[in-house]
């Protein structure tokens, strides 16, 4: 059942990606209602699947990340009419769900019943923080693409279909400002979980390094935006560099410690 739900979500995310990419292949732009409906139904089915996951292991973590990304895609479209976000989120979510299916959706041991709530909140908030950092990266990438087209006076598909610069900058700002507290609470819950149930701070070094690094990167991007008033292109570059660094460090740590039982 879990696999079928993920397969259905994968199909709808694929359709959502196809609808987002269609205008760039010369097809007409799909209506807003239709794109929202496809992503919404996909997210709905995926929600049922995510509710059945143990949340332990790489596969489930990727599935939750994909779910958060699609929810953020829908939120961006509804609140800021940033439909172009789907150009990145829909294929990314589809890819993550596909990868989760390949790696296995229930690879590891279940956390004990008493620890479940801590664990669910830790995973959900941490992954949400990561997804918001990804959204900041996506809005930054869209910003730079639109900026380049506007500067170069090219009035093609990017000019017509991408949101205005200021709206993308606001989306980047909101994603970072919302992502930092989510990740902070997620990390604090991990610390609390370790102290309460693992008898102290006996955390895997890779988890500690990556968690701290990601938190530090997200904190820095928020700091430069809020305290240093970075905006526009400079803030976009900061988000892209930050997200790329987080992904690269994760890949490096995962290569050093292969296995799908744990996220890291």
């Amino acid at each position: 059942m879990l696999v079928y739900l993920h397969l259905a979500a994968l199909g709808l995310y694929g359709l959502s990606a196809a609808l987002a990419l269609a205008p760039f292949a010369g097809f007409p732009v799909a209506s807003r209602r239709w794109t929202l409906w496809v992503a919404g139904v996909g997210a709905g089915i995926h929600t049922v699947g995510v509710a059945q996951l143990s949340l332990v292991g790489t596969g489930p973590a990727l599935s939750v990340l994909a779910w958060c990304l699609v929810l953020l895609q829908i939120g961006s479209e509804l609140l800021l009419r940033a439909a172009a976000v789907a150009l990145f989120t829909a294929p990314l979510a589809g890819g993550l769900v596909g990868l989760a299916l390949l790696l296995g959706l229930a690879p590891g041991a279940q956390p004990s019943a008493g620890r479940n709530m801590w664990f669910i909140l830790h995973v959900t908030l941490s992954v949400l923080g990561l997804a918001l950092l990804a959204l900041a990266f996506i809005s930054a990438a869209l910003y730079l693409l639109q900026f380049r087209e506007l500067k170069a006076k090219r009035f093609g598909q990017v000019f017509q279909l991408f949101p205005p610069l200021e709206r993308l900058d606001r989306l980047n700002h909101v994603a970072l400002v919302a992502g930092f507290p989510a990740l902070t609470v997620g990390v604090l819950l991990a610390v609390g979980y370790a102290v309460r149930y693992a008898g102290g701070m006996h955390v895997d070094p890779a988890q500690l390094v990556w968690g701290s690094f990601t938190w530090g990167v997200l904190g820095w991007t928020v700091w430069v935006r809020v305290a240093r008033h970075w905006a526009g292109r400079r803030a976009a570059f900061a988000s892209i560099v930050g997200f790329a660094a987080v992904v690269l460090v994760y890949v490096a740590l995962k290569l050093a410690q292969p296995g799908t039982e744990r996220f890291l």
Partner: peptide, 8 residues
Amino acid sequence: AVASKIFG
């Protein structure tokens, strides 16, 4: 339209 693509 062009100004709107910059400022929303």
